[in-house]
Simulated scan of single mutants.
Amino acid sequence: MNRWDVLVEVSPRSEIADPAGTTVERALRALGFSGVSGVRVGKAIRLEVSAADEAEARAVTEHMCERLLANPVIEDARIEVRATVAHESVS
């Protein structure tokens, strides 16, 4: 089994109102960031998945999204899978 670093980005579907995104956009403009538009607020979920290969890690993660991580009626989930890099401890 290999370990895979997975990033799931969940955001409201484009046709769904995003009041948090609207609030952030207005606040940014009030702070002088006039070139900002289309702000969408979502969530990022990082996890490690044990799987034989990248395709299996993606499939498992897609199943997690369907069951818990995202509401497919109102949210989109974007999945990024990378091989886990071994972390060496420094003594």
Rank of each mutant, 00 (worst) to 15 (best):
I16Y: 05
T22C: 04
R82Y: 03
R13Y: 02
R29Y: 05
S50A: 15
R82S: 12
F33A: 12
S37I: 13
L68K: 05
I79W: 14
E54M: 15
V49Q: 05
I79L: 02
A51S: 08
R82K: 13
V60I: 14
L28Q: 08
D53V: 01
A70W: 11
K43R: 11
E54Y: 12
A30H: 07
L31F: 09
N71C: 07
A51I: 02
L28C: 01
G42R: 11
I79S: 00
V49G: 02
A70S: 15
R13N: 06
S50E: 15
P72K: 05
V24D: 04
G32P: 00
M64I: 05
E62V: 10
R29N: 06
K43M: 05
A52T: 15
R26N: 05
E80V: 14
L69P: 09
N71P: 07
A51N: 08
S34W: 10
G38F: 06
P19R: 04
E75R: 10
V39C: 03
H63P: 09
G32N: 00
T22M: 11
G35M: 00
L69M: 11
V41R: 07
A57N: 12
V24G: 10
A52G: 15
G35N: 10
M64G: 02
V41E: 12
S34M: 09
A44T: 11
S34C: 10
D18W: 03
V60N: 07
I16A: 12
E15F: 14
P12T: 06
R82P: 00
F33D: 05
P72Y: 02
V49Y: 10
L28T: 10
G32E: 01
S50T: 12
E54H: 14
E25V: 09
M64P: 04
V41Q: 14
G21D: 11
V73C: 11
G21N: 08
A83L: 09
E56T: 09
A27W: 00
G38D: 04
G35D: 03
G32K: 01
L68S: 15
I16P: 01
F33R: 01
M64H: 01
A27Q: 02
A17H: 08
H63G: 07
A59D: 05
R67S: 08
D18Y: 03
V81A: 01
S50Y: 08
H63I: 06
A83W: 07
R58N: 13
V73Q: 10
R40Q: 11
A44G: 09
I79Y: 03
G32D: 02
K43C: 05
D76A: 09
A51M: 07
A17K: 11
M64K: 01
R40F: 02
E80S: 09
A83Y: 06
A27P: 00
A51Q: 04
P72L: 04
E75M: 06
A52H: 13
N71E: 08
A30R: 10
C65Q: 03
R67V: 13
E75A: 06
A70L: 13
R13V: 01
A55K: 14
E75F: 04
R46C: 03
S50I: 08
V49N: 02
E75N: 07
L68D: 04
R29V: 09
H63Q: 14
V41T: 05
A77W: 10
A59I: 01
R26H: 04
A83E: 14
E80L: 13
